[in-house]
Design a binder for these strands. Sequence first.
DNA 1: TTAATTGTAATTAATACAGTTACAATCAAT
DNA 2: ATTGATTGTAACTGTATTAATTACAATTAA
Lengths: 146, 146
Amino acid sequence: MRVSTRFSDSIHILAFIEIYKNIRLSSEVIASSVETSPVVIRRLMGVLREAGLIATKQGSAEPKLARDPKDITLLDIYFATEGNKPLFELDKKTNPECIVGGNIQDVLGDYYEQAKVAAQRKLNDTTLQDLIETILVKQKAKEISG
Amino acid sequence: MRVSTRFSDSIHILAFIEIYKNIRLSSEVIASSVETSPVVIRRLMGVLREAGLIATKQGSAEPKLARDPKDITLLDIYFATEGNKPLFELDKKTNPECIVGGNIQDVLGDYYEQAKVAAQRKLNDTTLQDLIETILVKQKAKEISG
DNA sequence: TTAATTGTAATTAATACAGTTACAATCAAT
DNA sequence: ATTGATTGTAACTGTATTAATTACAATTAA
C-alpha cells in the first residue's frame, strides 16, 4: 500500500504549533507547511487531541500543545498516531500440525517484540523540544551559509 | 495495504529447510507448513537464493542452506527480503519555504535512522540456529504437557 | 522418455492510505 | 443577533502494495 506518513506529519504539526504559537494557526496555514489538505491536518489533529497532546476549539484557529514540549517524546506521538502495533508482521496462518508452523509464531513474536521495544526506546529518548531546537539550529546554519 | 509477511515467511522457510533437511523438500511440502501456495514459496526462495542464503537447483526438490545456521541472523534475512528500507516513513513533500517544512525531513531522518538501527541490532543478535533451537524446545514442552 | 519440479511472468483481489467533497457545529467580530 | 471563517467528521475516490493465482518454459531424475 501507500506508506503512512501520519507519524511524520503529526510531529510536523506539533513542531509547527509550538514554533509559530504567536500567529494564527488555521488548518489551512498548517497544511501549507505540510503540503497537504486542511482536512488531513484536522483529521490528524483530532487524533492528537484524543491522545492528550494538543487542545483545540471548534471554530477557532488556536490549537495549543497540551503539554510542555519537553514532556512529549517521539514515542508519545508514535503511539498516538500508529498505536502499539507490530513493527514486523507475523504470518498468523501457519500449519499448527508442523513443528515449525506450530511454534514459529510464538518464538518470532518474542524476537520481534524485543526489536520493536529497542526502536521505541530510541524514539522515547527524543523530545519535541529536542526536535524543535535541532530544527532551529539547522535553519540558522542554512541562513549563514546561504 | 495488506501487510507483508515476506520476512516472517522467509524465516519459516529457512528454519523448515534446516529442521527437515533429511526429507524431500518440494515447494509443495514447504507451502503446506507456511500455509500458502507453492508459487509464493518459490518466489521467496528465489530472493533468498539471490541473497546467498540458500542454494537451489531447478527441477530438483533439494534446497539447502548456503551457510551455517549459526552464521545467518534475522537481520540477514530481513535485508534479503525487505532491504534496508526505512522503518518509519518520512513525508518527503513538505514546504521548503517554511522553517519546519524545510528542515524536518533531515532532522527526523536522523532520529528515525537511530531507531531503525536499534531494532536492526536486536535482529542481528538472533541467529537462525537460536531460532531453530528455541522452536525445538517449545515443541518438546508442548509434547510433555499435552 | 516422461512425470515431477523449479523459475518466472502476468493477472487478480484485498487492503491501507492520503486526498477530496460535503456539511453541520462552533466561534469571533461586528 | 448576524455573518464569515473555521473546526470536526463522515463518506467516497484513487493509488499503491501485497499474497494469491494462473500459466508455462526449463530442468531434473528415474
